[in-house]
């Protein structure tokens, strides 16, 4: 039986795109959440400084 190379290519392409897309978006999401956490931290630190 011959190999269905078209399906194989689709399987591989779907996989590679899924892996890079999922981890790429997670990279952005984690970077953004890290930015928000650091911003909140900075604001808290500013508020807690006396006389400001």
């Amino acid at each position: 039986m011959g190999m269905d190379w078209e399906k194989a290519l689709i399987v591989a392409a779907t996989g590679i795109v899924s892996v890079f897309l999922a981890l790429g978006i997670l990279n952005l999401a984690v970077s953004f959440s890290g930015y928000l956490f650091r911003l909140a931290e900075k604001r808290r630190a500013e508020k807690s400084q006396p006389g400001t």
Binding site: V19, F20, L23, G24, N27, V30, S31
Partner: peptide
């Protein structure tokens, strides 16, 4: 977080 890309 860019180490996630290396995991990919």
């Amino acid at each position: 977080p860019k180490t996630l890309i290396l995991g990919a």
